[in-house]
């Protein structure tokens, strides 16, 4: 179990480091104008992330060794590299999230435009007068053309008598109705195409909202949706930075390595065996220049030894 926890922490730390390094390097190198500049900025980012991983452990060791200057310098450096990584990570997260949100907004805009056009079409269809089907009208018109009045008025171009005028008025009414029916048919086809297009857009819809997470949190907290969007975007970068610093510290620290499962016997620490203290040897060593005095635990010291 303990090994599993260690592996999980180590795996999480490695993932955080890899993702953070990748994100920061991609973002920072994107600021370069030429490939060389991009490579240099990417290298700076990678070096910064490498330092960010190593410095917490260095700080802890410097504190344990009471090397205050080293601890201070390492802390200063760590703050600086975390700042850089945080800025890069936030930039990457913002650009990624913004592009996704923009895509969703564009999609939603397309749907809204289609819906507006469909409403306009239906409005135009409502303004048309009621008409019978085109075939019916055309058949009736054909029937009118075989009438004697049709030839007498030269196809209703020159009606002279009252009867001819009435006949031609009927023909023109039929023609108007035919045009109305044709327009209605055209509108129907156009509406059908638009409905299909709208359904396709709605079928491919990424979500009802451009940023549903931010929208839901904003609604829950009763704040403007831009605030949770900014916080959520930055939070990803903060988690990455904290993860790649703290998880490394945990992976290298005593919380995992010093833990033993309850019931497991504590390993006996190694106590070095020491040579018995002998006055002649001590005396000789003191005589030699530059020699430090050796260990002075008394073999049999508790029993009167070391005389």
């Amino acid at each position: 179990m303990s090994i599993l926890i260690r592996l999980l922490v180590l795996g999480a730390a490695l993932l955080f480091i890899a993702v953070s390094t990748g994100m920061n390097a991609v973002f920072l190198s994107s600021l370069g104008r030429t490939p060389l500049e991009a490579a240099m900025l990417g290298a700076v980012s990678v070096a910064s992330d490498a330092a960010k991983v190593a410095l917490p452990v260095v700080i802890m060791r410097a504190l344990a060794l009471r090397a205050w200057v080293h601890a201070f310098a390492a802390t200063l450096m760590l703050i600086a590299v975390i700042g850089l990584s945080l800025a890069s990570g936030t930039g990457f997260a913002v650009s990624t999230r913004s592009s996704v949100v923009a895509e969703r907004e564009t999609h939603a805009g397309r749907i809204a435009a289609r819906e507006r056009e469909l409403a306009e079409l239906e409005q135009r269809a409502k303004t048309l007068l009621p008409s019978r089907p085109e075939a019916v009208i055309e058949t009736e018109l054909m029937g009118k053309r075989v009438d004697r009045q049709w030839q007498a008025t030269t196809g209703c171009t020159s009606p002279t008598t009252t009867a001819a005028r009435l006949y031609c008025a009927e023909v023109f009414r039929l023609r108007t109705e035919l045009e109305t029916a044709k327009a209605r048919t055209a509108l129907g086809i156009e509406r059908h195409e638009m409905v299909r297009s709208l359904e396709a857009l709605q079928g491919a819809s990424i979500g009802g909202d451009s940023d549903p997470q931010a929208a839901a949190i904003a609604e829950l907290l009763g704040v403007d949706r831009r605030l949770p969007r900014v916080v959520l975007t930055s939070w990803t970068a903060v988690i990455l930075e904290l993860g790649s610093v703290i998880m490394v510290l945990l992976a290298a620290g005593p919380a995992l390595h010093g833990w033993r499962e309850p019931g497991m016997a504590e390993p006996t620490p190694l106590v070095p065996a020491e040579l018995p203290v002998q006055p002649d040897r001590l005396h000789w060593r003191r005589q030699r220049k530059g020699m430090t005095f050796g260990t002075t635990t008394g073999w049999m010291g508790d029993h009167g030894g070391g005389r």
Binding site: V271, P272, A273, L275, Q278, R281, W284, G294
Partner: peptide
């Protein structure tokens, strides 16, 4: 005394012997 000194140097260089 020389032997004891050499033994101590050996333990320092090669690692101590566990007292247990």
């Amino acid at each position: 005394v020389l032997f004891e000194d050499m033994l101590e140097a050996y333990l320092e260089k090669r690692g101590p012997v566990d007292k247990s």
